[in-house]
Every structure is written in C-alpha cells, then in structure tokens.
Nucleic acid binder design. Sequence first.
DNA 1: ATTATAGTTAGATTAATATCGAAGTATGAA
DNA 2: TTCATACTTCGATATTAATCTAACTATAAT
Lengths: 229, 229
Amino acid sequence: MKEGPDITLIGSLIGDPARANMLSALISGKALTASELANEANITLQTTSAHLKKLEAGGLIRQRKQGRHRYFNLADEDVATLLETMMGLAAKKGHIRTRTGPKAPEMRKARVCYNHLAGEFGVQMFDSLIGRGFLLEERDEIAITDSGRDFIRGLGINLELLQKAKRPLCKSCLDWSARRSHLAGSLGTALLNHIYEKGWAKRLEDVRVVEFSRRGEAAFHNQFPRLTD
Amino acid sequence: MKEGPDITLIGSLIGDPARANMLSALISGKALTASELANEANITLQTTSAHLKKLEAGGLIRQRKQGRHRYFNLADEDVATLLETMMGLAAKKGHIRTRTGPKAPEMRKARVCYNHLAGEFGVQMFDSLIGRGFLLEERDEIAITDSGRDFIRGLGINLELLQKAKRPLCKSCLDWSARRSHLAGSLGTALLNHIYEKGWAKRLEDVRVVEFSRRGEAAFHNQFPRLTD
DNA sequence: ATTATAGTTAGATTAATATCGAAGTATGAA
DNA sequence: TTCATACTTCGATATTAATCTAACTATAAT
C-alpha cells in the first residue's frame, strides 16, 4: 500500500476480493470468527489472519477476544454505511457479482442483505409499499409519503427516531437474485426488525437466510399484500 | 482485477494512489483534461490514459470529447457521494493525507472541498454556527436546531428541499489544512452556493481556491462572526 | 500431561498491475 | 504539407502484495 490520498487505503482494503468477501459477510452485523471468515472468502486461515490484521489497522473492523476465539465485527455504523453505499453504486453500475449469486432457493426467497430484507420477500414488500402509495419512487430516490408515515407508525415503529439517524431513511437496493429493487436504509432495517419482533421469521446464526414460519409467512403476505395491477 | 464480489472493482479502482488523486481532483465538479489529471497524479500521460480507461469502464467517470481535448468528470452525483463518504470515514479513522496537503496560502484560507467551503473560512463558518447554537455537535453527528432552521431559512435557503435529498443535511468534514471540522452535507453545499450567489466570492475555473472580494469577506465575517469564548 | 482447536508469524512463490519508453492516431494550426 | 498538441496503444520491466506451506503460540478439553 503506497502513499496516496486518504481514500486510497480504504479503497485498497475493499479492493481485494478476499477482504471484500469478508466485509460482505460481516455487514449482516453478526460477529464472525477468523475461521468462518476464511471459509467465507475461500482462503486459508493464515491468509485470512493477514487480511484481518490489515482491515483492523485500517479501522474497518474490530475484534473481541473470547477464549480461544476471536470475533470480528465491522468497526462501526459508518463502515456499514460506506459498504452499503458502495454496494448500491456497484449495483447501479451493473457490477453484479459474477461468481457467486445466491445459490440456495431459500436464499432467493428471503435473506438478510446488510441489515434489511432481500430476496423475493424483500422485493414484494417494496412493491407493496410502493403500490399502496406509502413510498414514492422518483428516479433513484425513494421518499415516504404522509400515508406511508401513518402506516409505519401504525406498525409501532418510531419514525422520528429513524429520521434522526445519519443513514438515509429510504434507499433502494438492487437485488442480486431478483434483479429488482428492494428497500434499504434505516426504514428497511426497522422493517426487518419488525418481522423478527413479530416472530414471523427467525434470526438464524451464521447464515443470511431469513427463515419464515408458516404463520409468519401468512402474516407477512397479509401485511404487505402483492397487488395485482 | 480478479473476480470478486461487486464492491471489489470499485474498491480497487479507488485503491490506487494515482486514480485516487485523479478522483479527488474531479470531486470539485470541474471537468479536467487527461493532461491535467496526469499532472495532478504526478504520472505520465500514458499511465494516466490507462487509468482513465479503467475508471470509465468501472463507471466512475465520464468523458466528453471536444476538439483534441477530452474532458473528464465524475460519472454522476452518486460517485461524488461515495467519495465524500469515503473521505469522511478516512478522516475519522485518521487516514490523513501524508504527502500533499494544500500548499498555497490562498488554499489554506478558503477552498472548495468537494462542494462545500473548507479552509479557515470554512472552519470559521462552522464554529460560528455551532457557537450561536444553530448547529449541535454530538459525538460525530451534526444536527440543526430550531433556531438554526430559522437562521438558514432567513438566508433564503429552501431547507425542506435539502432535507428531501439522499445526502445527509449536516455532516462534519475534517479539514486538511486546519485539522479542524467544517460543514459538509447538503447544507454545506447550499451555504457555499449562497456565498457565490451573494457575490461574496468568485467561482474560479480549474482551481479549488475560493476567492473572496474585499466586500465579500466583510459580509462573510458579518454573517458568520467569530465568537470569543 | 497430552491432544485438539484457534489463530499468528515467517519465508518463499507467484500473479497482478502500475509504470514508463517508444511508436502510433487524431485534431488543429501555420 | 508540415508541424505541434493531445491522447492512445504496445511491449517490457519492476514492484507490490496475495497466497500457500511450515512452524509457532495460546486456550481449552480429556
């Protein structure tokens, strides 16, 4: 890593495929061990160790020692925001991941993308919110409408709290599997949490698949109905 | 550039010092020729050409042919946003540019940083807004107060329009020269535009220096007084 | 103690790519 | 036509850094 302007280091850290894979894995918020990250990036543990050292030195990740394990996390919310921004731009520019799309059908159905819902369920939720006039899509910007505010508040979500956050409230995110937009941003995160809190789906360890129960699936479809147009 | 997840390409593009220098130069919004960018990055024109090709293929820049010149720009506002986000994170993590800070004294005084005001004038404006209770600084987040809203509206700035934008309204940005914070975000941009519109300073071509007139300087100090505490 | 698991460090190899020199293309000026 | 400027393409070189094997440290389990 040669000298260069301030953004060079961060760019080169993310610019390596192995490290990018690790960061992508960490973006779900779940703490992962070095071995898990090695597996995620398909490299040996030694190489992983070297990468983790660089990522930590660059301030992108943090580690917690616990017994003989080391758990790694993104350093803070800002790093997650940066990665989200990059993913969004990459999707818009058509840099779709060539190598590994979501393979398993459960992944295509519903999965965690960073910290919001993606997959068919994510797309359906987004379409439903747009279709009922709760969200407004203009070019690439998403805005919430007045009726949308009422709807979200009706779910018991504290909208004012979300708006104070640095992250944009509404943001679209292109879906790998469906090649359609779904909802990111702090509202997207809040809605995923809502799904967990209602018990519609379980938060699985280690995996990004979101597993809906039968009842949860029905409740989801009821809350975010598919509209025939 | 090996295969990898979607963010890898963008990361590696920004991760090269020469390219990062070029992108930093372009972030002011001014279109630059290949030769100018070569000069900015301190590399030969041949190497520059190769870099520009990659940046364009990656969707980060656009080019316009005009006679025997080629003018380069960032591809769109999203790219600028990404770079701003990265600069912000880099500053927070302490990855300050080691090599070249702003040299010329005019640069230290007032310059364009992305699309807001930086340098001593930028820092003073920021301090003044904080000191008069128009902005609130909590940890790394900046928020506008009710009296701040009144003040900004009083300048004739449409605050509601700014808040609808994707970009955060208020954001702090660490100053290279002053090592102090100044105001970025859409409000920062709006205030810089306000300075131009009032005729306090001229928008110079090719250079990032913001040149205040005598009268403009006085008006600026009047509008954003330095507070003795 | 002994063995197993989790991770780091060191050293060698290899692959990627930034860089430049030299030659070529395109536009404009004299 | 000739010359100059702006930029691209080609080919060679050199440097960087990602990767692996092997050896080492630390914690935990038996």
